[in-house]
C-alpha cells in the first residue's frame, strides 16, 4: 500500500489517481485526483466537491493551467522520473505566482531523499511506495536552515543573518 506523508505524518494513501481513459461517474468521485482535461470538462461540478483534486504531469507549463486549477483543494504534480526536476519549478510557480494555499502533492517517481527540497519548493504532501519510516524524518528535515529564499522561507539568509 502506498503511503501519504503530510505534516510529518505517514498514513495509508487512500487517494486514487484517475487516468484519462478511465470510465468514471463524476458525481461519485471521492478522494480522487483527476487529470486536467477531466477537471476542465467538469469544472463546476468538481469545484464543489472538496474530495477531488487535480493532477498534472511534471512537464506541464505553468502558463497552460486555467485559473480554475488554482481553486482546487489539491494540485498533485507527477514526477515522470526522480531526476526530472521540472516539478520543483512548477510547484514554486503555483505557490509564488498564484499564492495557491491548498495542498501541493508530489506523486510519481520522486524519491524520499528529495523530500526536503520538495518541501522548500512548496510541496505539502507526498505519495510514496515502500516507505522506510525511519528515514523519512531524516529526509524531511535534512537541513535546519537555508541560504536562499524559497516557498518555506521567502527571506534569504542574508536578510536574516545577524
Amino acid at each position: 500500500m502506498q503511503k501519504l506523508i503530510k505534516n510529518g505524518d505517514i498514513t495509508e494513501n487512500y487517494w486514487d489517481i484517475i487516468s484519462d481513459e478511465q470510465a468514471i461517474e463524476i458525481a461519485q468521485l471521492k478522494n480522487a485526483l483527476v487529470p486536467l482535461d477531466l477537471w476542465i470538462k467538469n469544472e463546476a461540478q468538481l469545484l464543489n466537491n472538496g474530495k477531488v483534486g487535480i493532477w498534472v504531469p511534471g512537464d506541464t507549463a505553468f502558463d497552460s493551467l486555467p485559473e480554475s486549477v488554482f481553486q482546487a483543494a489539491i494540485i498533485a504534480i507527477s514526477f515522470p522520473a526522480f531526476a526530472d526536476g521540472r516539478g520543483f519549478s512548477l510547484a514554486r510557480q503555483i505557490r509564488e505566482h498564484k499564492d495557491f494555499s491548498g495542498d501541493i502533492r508530489a506523486i510519481g517517481a520522486f524519491v524520499p531523499d528529495q523530500l526536503y527540497y520538495l518541501t522548500r519548493c512548496g510541496f505539502s504532501s507526498f505519495v510514496l511506495d515502500d516507505v522506510d519510516d525511519s528515514s523519512i524524518n531524516e529526509c524531511l528535515n535534512a537541513f535546519s536552515n537555508s541560504y536562499q529564499a524559497a516557498v518555506d522561507e521567502p527571506r534569504p539568509l542574508f536578510r536574516r543573518r545577524n
Binding site: G85, F88, Y117, R120, Q148, P156, F158
Partner: peptide, 16 residues
C-alpha cells in the same frame, strides 16, 4: 561568494 551561497542546496535547481 554571494552566488556560492545562493546556489548551495538551491532546492529548485538540484535536478536540472
Amino acid at each position: 561568494e554571494i552566488i556560492r551561497q545562493w546556489s548551495t542546496f538551491h532546492p529548485e535547481f538540484a535536478f536540472l
